[in-house]
Amino acid sequence: MEKRVTFKGWLLPLVLLTPQLLITAVFFFYPAGQAVWQSLFIPDPFGLKSQFVGLGNFEFLLNDPYYRASFATTAVFSISVTLVSMGVALFLALLADRLIKGSGAYRTLLIWPYAVAPAVAGVLWMFMFNNRVGVVAWYLGVLGYDWNHVLNGREAMGLVVVASSWGRISYNFLFFLAGLQAIPKSVIEAAAIDGARFWTRFRTIVWPLLSPTTFFLMVVNIVYAFFETFGVIHTITAGGPQQSTTILVYKVYADGFVGQDLGSSAAQSVILLIVVGLLTVVQFRFVERRVHY
């Protein structure tokens, strides 16, 4: 796509581009390049000089049981967050779509958790499940279940999944509702006249027509679970217990800043760069296709 009508000159556009180019060069390209460069070295403990190890850091990582475990943890975590937040959102959107009046009011009541920061959501959920003062933990205790996510890895994972999905439901709800409302009512009514019940209509008409929205949300939610949930993990579990909630982004932070293992942290950054790159390609191909529909 090109404009037919343009202005002359080359100095002005360069001046206009300068602020963005400068900031991008200093805070994006240089650090990204540094990450790639550092991933090829192992610094000595005093940070005085570093030794070139080629792909040694990557080789070490891929054989490191902790790193592999973190990959598995990230997979479980992001798939769970995607399923939970999309499942609840789709259910609520289906309900809201059935309403003739009042879906706007429910929408207002449902979208604002989106504005709550993941780290704040983490604090709220940690408060409810805190084993000393948490209300939910206390009632679970009354029911005979001894909740303690500080010691129990499965409970910790469950809690960070729910806390991360919570605010995300708003976002998915908005997109699902918009997708549902874009389906012509006449199609659905025609099916109803033919005697198709709700579940049949959903399976044969609504779900297929909704699939572009669903696919888009899947990619976006996986990206969210990978990169934007650091605040939830850091406030609730700090990656524990026994690294059971250490997702990849958390490990980059823990190894780089807490463990001061810069070579390994940089190599992990590069691996994440590749993951993001792949996800971006998937999304762009999908977006292209959607545009040409």
């Binding site: 991008t24 805070f27 994006f28 240089y30 650090p31 990204a32 540094q34 990450a35 550092q38 990206v223 990169f227 934007e228 650091f230 982004v249 980059v252 932070y253 780089g256 800043f257 810069l262 942290s265 940089a266 950054s269 994440l272 760069l273 993001v276 996800l279 971006t280 999304q283």
Partner: peptide
Amino acid sequence: TLMLPVEVRIVPT
């Protein structure tokens, strides 16, 4: 630079 969050290049940044 689209979509590459700061979390990924955190140490060098």
